[in-house]
Structures are given as C-alpha cells and as structure tokens.
Amino acid sequence: MSVTSTVLIRTREARRQRRSGLPRWLLIGAEILVPILLLALWWIVSAGSTNTFFPPLQAILNQFVTLLGTPAFWGDVGSSVGNLALSFALACVIGVLLGLLLGTVRWLSWLLEPTIHFFRAIPPVALVPIFVALIGFGNETRILSITLSAVFPVLISTIDGIHAVDPDRRAVGKIYRLGWWDRIFSVALPEASPRILSGMQVSLITAFVVMVASEMLGSSEGLGARTLLAQQSFMITDMWVGILVLGVIGYAATALLSLFRRRVLRWYIAIRQQEKNL
C-alpha cells in the first residue's frame, strides 16, 4: 500500500505540474517569498514612523532580539506552547474516544447529541470567565478551558465519520466475524480518519484562540498575558513582539498538523486522486 501510494502521489504531482506549467520548486519558492515581501513592505512603510502604536519594524525586531536573552520571555513561550500542546492532545484523545463510543452506540448518540450541539454552539471564549469564576486563576483553569473548548470539533467529526462508514464494509466485517475491537480499529476508524483529522484542524484553531484569551484574563503567565500587560503599560514594541510570536506559534502548529495529516492520509489522498484521473 505504501509503495502504491507513493507512486500515485508522485504521478499526481507530475500531472499537476504539467497542468500548471510550473515546477514544484518554483511554487514552494513563491510560498516562501510572499511572507518575505510582506515583511519588506512593512519595513518600508513603518520606517521613520512616529506613531506610538505603529513603531518601525526595525524597533520591533530589535526588541525581539533583546527579549530572546531574557528567561522570563522563554518562560512565557514555554507556558503558552505547553498549555496548547497538552490541551490539544487531551481534546483529541477525549474527542476520539467519546466519538467512537457515541458513533457505535446509536441510541446513546441520539440521546446526547442535542446536548453536545448546545454546548458546541456556545462561543469558546465565553467559557473562559466561567471557569475562572468557578476554579480560579490557575494553570489548571487554562488547560481545562482550552481542552473543553477544543474537544467538540474532534468529537463531532468522529461521530460523523463513524456514522458515514460504508455499510458494505460493516457487513464484510460481520461476515468475517471480526470482533468489536477489530471492526473499530480495522474498518471504522481508518475510514473515518479523514473527517477526524479535519476536525482536529478546527480544534487546533479553537484551542489556540482560547489559549490566548485564557492567558489574557487574570493570568500573569504566557504570551497572551505578556502581550496584554505590554499594551496596558504602553510598552508598544513588546506588544508587537508578543503578537508576532503568537502568529509564528500558530502558523508552526498548523503546519505541523497539516504535515501529520498528509502523512497519515497518504492512502486516502492517493485513492481520491486515482478516482479523479479515471
């Protein structure tokens, strides 16, 4: 399967290049060049700026280099990244396991789905003040609020993925007398994995937004708290540094998850491409 998938993916890339008329290295170069051009434009436009709230990019980068040498800055980065990674992992595990249960036990899904959709409809950021009021301003509050906000996209996508499994494949599993465990992990879960991973991408965005919001509400740790404190203290260059670093962390997390998704779903991408070429 892996050799076939690799061949199909390479065939797909070759056909795509022929259709577009552009080599892959040129497309990658353009993807890298656009952010560089935007930074260069920012540098030019902000050069010599006297606006307190729009300092020159050079001043922001100089302050960033200065902050790199302070342990407090790295402590805030570590706190934000650690909370995001732990909460996202917990949300994925809880969402997938609970989704498998609700997806296979139809009556339980029918019973609980209205409640799930009700809580999912609540804006994730609105949950943060509730947890702060109930639990307090601890790191546990931030992890709990991020996890519970990010679990719903994974949970719902897992339930939908399990419900969408081809009935013929379910029947084949029964014919071969596969146990419940084998039917889940050999039939249902692989077929539902594209939807589950799409839900994880939405969950990551939700987790990142709630992470920043939870740090800004009564916390003294994390990049969100540092950015808000800098804004309130009129340390505008520090504020811009916090915003840029948060953007880099969000982009890196999304890129890593996209890479993981492509690795896991190589077989699915190859099959879809083969179907299009038929």
Score class of each variant (00 low, 15 high):
Leu67Asn: 07
Thr66Leu: 07
Leu127Ala: 02
Ala121Arg: 07
Asn139Trp: 14
Ser80Arg: 01
Phe118Ser: 04
Phe131Glu: 00
Arg142Pro: 00
Leu111Lys: 10
Gly103Val: 00
Pro71Cys: 07
Asn83Arg: 15
Ile135Ala: 08
Val93Ile: 14
Leu155Asn: 09
Val77Asn: 02
Ile135His: 08
Phe88Trp: 05
Leu101Ile: 15
Val81Tyr: 03
Ala72Tyr: 09
Trp110Gln: 15
Leu108Phe: 06
Phe118Ala: 09
Val65Trp: 11
Thr70Glu: 06
Asn83His: 11
Ala91Glu: 13
Ser79Glu: 10
Ala150Ile: 11
Leu101Tyr: 12
Val77Met: 01
Phe131Pro: 00
Leu144Gly: 11
Ala150Val: 13
Leu108Cys: 08
His117Lys: 14
Ile135Tyr: 09
Glu113Phe: 12
Leu102Phe: 14
Leu112Glu: 12
Asp76Tyr: 03
Leu90Phe: 12
Ala133Cys: 02
Ile94Arg: 01
Leu68Asp: 03
Gly99Lys: 03
Pro124Phe: 10
Val128Met: 02
Leu90His: 06
Ser109Cys: 14
Ser149Gly: 12
Trp74Val: 08
Leu86Pro: 00
Pro129Phe: 04
Phe118His: 02
Leu127Arg: 05
Thr66Val: 13
Phe137Ala: 03
Val154Ile: 14
Val77Ser: 02
Glu113Gly: 03
Arg106Asn: 07
Pro153Arg: 08
Ser80Glu: 05
Cys92Arg: 09
Val105Gln: 13
Phe88Tyr: 06
Phe118Cys: 03
Ala121Asn: 08
Pro114Glu: 11
Glu113Tyr: 13
Phe152Val: 13
Gly136Cys: 07
Ala72Thr: 07
Ser145Ala: 14
Leu98Met: 15
Ile122Glu: 01
Ile146Met: 10
Leu127Gly: 03
Leu84Asp: 10
Leu144His: 12
Leu90Gln: 06
Val154Ala: 09
Ser80Asn: 05
Thr147Ala: 08
Val93Asn: 06
Leu100Gln: 10
Pro153Gln: 03
Pro71Lys: 09
Thr115Tyr: 15
Gly75Ala: 05
Phe73Cys: 01
Leu67Met: 12
Ser149Pro: 00
Gly138Glu: 09
Thr147Val: 13
Leu102Asp: 10
Leu108Asp: 03
Gly99Gln: 07
Phe88Pro: 00
Ala133Tyr: 15
Thr115Cys: 06
Pro129Val: 05
Leu84Ala: 07
Asp76Gly: 01
Leu127Ser: 04
Leu127Glu: 05
Trp74Tyr: 02
Cys92Ser: 14
Val105Tyr: 10
Ala150Phe: 08
Thr141Asn: 04
Gly82Leu: 01
Glu113Arg: 12
Trp107Asn: 11
Ala72Gly: 05
Leu111Ala: 15
Leu100Asn: 09
Arg120Leu: 08
Trp107Met: 15
Ser87Ile: 06
Asn83Ser: 15
Leu101Thr: 15
Val81Ile: 11
Gly69Pro: 00
Val132Glu: 04
Trp110Val: 14
Arg106Ala: 11
Val154Asp: 01
Leu134His: 11
Ala91His: 09
Pro123Asn: 10
Val151Glu: 06
Val105Cys: 06
Pro153Phe: 10
Pro71Ile: 11
Glu113Leu: 12
Val81Phe: 04
Leu148Phe: 14
Ile130Asn: 01
Gly82Ser: 09
Phe152Trp: 13
Leu84Ser: 08
Val77Cys: 06
Ile116Pro: 02
Val128Leu: 02
Gly136Val: 02
Val132Arg: 00
Leu155Val: 11
Phe152Asn: 09
Pro114His: 13
Leu148Tyr: 12
Ala150Asp: 09
Gly136Asn: 08
Ile116Val: 11
Phe73His: 00
